[in-house]
Design a protein around this nucleic acid. Sequence first.
DNA 1: AACTTTCCTGGGACCGCTTCCAGCCGCCTC
DNA 2: GAGGCGGCTGGAAGCGGTCCCAGGAAAGTT
Lengths: 337, 337
Amino acid sequence: MAADPPRRQPTLDEVAERAGVSRSAASRAINQAPHVSRATRAAVERAVKELGYQPNRTARALATQQTGIVALAVSHDAPELFADPFFAQVIVGVSAALEDTELHLVLCLASSGRGQTRLTNLLRTRGVDGIMLMALRGDDPLTRIVRQAGLPAVYGGRPLNFEPQWYVDSDNVGGARLATEHLIGLGRTRIVTISGQTGTEVGEARYRGYREAMIMAGLIPYGMAEGDFTEAGGAAAMKTLLDSHPDLDAVVAANDNMAAGALRVLAESGRSVPADVAVVGFDDLDVAERTQPPLTTVHQSIQALGKEMTRMLIDLIAGRERTSLILPTRLVVRDSA
Amino acid sequence: MAADPPRRQPTLDEVAERAGVSRSAASRAINQAPHVSRATRAAVERAVKELGYQPNRTARALATQQTGIVALAVSHDAPELFADPFFAQVIVGVSAALEDTELHLVLCLASSGRGQTRLTNLLRTRGVDGIMLMALRGDDPLTRIVRQAGLPAVYGGRPLNFEPQWYVDSDNVGGARLATEHLIGLGRTRIVTISGQTGTEVGEARYRGYREAMIMAGLIPYGMAEGDFTEAGGAAAMKTLLDSHPDLDAVVAANDNMAAGALRVLAESGRSVPADVAVVGFDDLDVAERTQPPLTTVHQSIQALGKEMTRMLIDLIAGRERTSLILPTRLVVRDSA
DNA sequence: AACTTTCCTGGGACCGCTTCCAGCCGCCTC
DNA sequence: GAGGCGGCTGGAAGCGGTCCCAGGAAAGTT
């Protein structure tokens, strides 16, 4: 089945023998440990080179009790949702952070019951040194599983109703505030918001940011409709708001997809953006550049999120102290506001 | 650093002791091996339950010489390109196939030199039982690395200039033929094509399919411009073709992104689709449903690709015979042709 | 009742590496 | 020149499983 004859990899014993030293000495030399004479080190290095030796990962893991593997678990109702570019961005960030370590990444799509069982096994059998979790709801069984495993765990975003000990999150409140303040600075006062699901932390946080900014400016939160983070949901919410608040002059959408939906409905209703109604989104996904007009939006770096989660996990595994992290967001001004 | 006191997992010895049997007996009972009395099995099962025992993955791996891990390596010039939904689809397929096995997936973004080194190490240190490779160019150093590792390896798609022993590929030639024949069936004769990079197997194969269909219908391949699989590239190619063949009446694009670019340029040039010019794409990505008009395109299931690759790899690891696989494509007729 | 055969059993080697520890050596100090 | 101190060294005990094998008990055969 293997492409080449499965010629066994040389072992440490063989290296030691060839170098004329003991296995312990060889091990020490290979691991750059102290208490190795120059001569020994040189002999071992030569033997390693000649034999093409590579220490066996599994054996080392068994001895050190460290697998050199971290898990990234993505929990989602339907595995198809994994296709969201969001996760790809996270993975790119994670990989970047892993790049200058010896760690490898196992990816767990833990949506189904089967997937969760597999993940549980992986943790309980000590198959990984630590884990990163994304897209959890507060009541997700994964949180319990992870807690029980007693392994370092870093959350991406905060589940609702549960503050993990270690997490990395975008500053959703601050971002929404930024967006709203921008509109206020433009002289808008009848500012409504299209929120995400109120059952999610992101949804709640961005809504909170909008409210805070309004109140701090002495304005009343003018109107709100709940969306579901999709283009269609944004469109529906926009219609509702146009009915209830026909004189609105700006809208803060909790993400770009919904903002795109809102733009579509506004165009259909004959309002011009940004003249009649200013719109700002959130996320700064690709779609934001392609809407008509291009979307002013709040930028958050998903890659950075993945990278920081990974760095944090690495530190935790190494036993270093860490505290949770909230990543800044910034406003990207285009034409819609 | 761990959330809970790192209370050691119970070991097989402890289970054996508690069950009042030897370690070997306990091992046999746990692994459903034969030669275990009902009494022993029951005692062991009870002990396992009481202790919450889970065999240590690493120790087992060392003894069996099987890690229970497979790698999916993605080689790409820039890690950002990983954000292409294509890979997400592959991963979903792979995960689905892995779901009813004990195998786990490690994901390797092996674009950079660092990434390649890491992958090489993973293979040479026997960190995985097998590997799947995607998006390779024929001269990719990975092919050599993988060959040397002597591990079961399955390719997704065929690199140019090199036919791997085991691969799963979509029927690109057949798909492009299907698309072209559809246009011919519609009575079009001045059919041009926007190809992918000629340096890629996919690009070449789809171009070949177009040519074959034309020739078999007694038509001459009317014109060709090379794109790069992006929307912008497709647009540029379309402009070129409109200049050189102003009377063209149909275009076969080697993927949906380029087809979308072509549609845009056609609209700008005042031609109506499909009345003046019929357009068909390839891939059936989400974008195909959202173009104006919705795109007739060749559907290939990327998830199926991932799934089949994984099944093949599992078989190879188990020592079963397998031969490469070419997955069918089918035409999805929408409005653009 | 003696002798196979069958089924279980536990002992122990082994997978390949890390790491503790006692011992050895050379060198410095007084 | 004896005692002390460090740096290296190899032996051996681990990490936590799998699995071969010899042997013992129970069952079946004459």
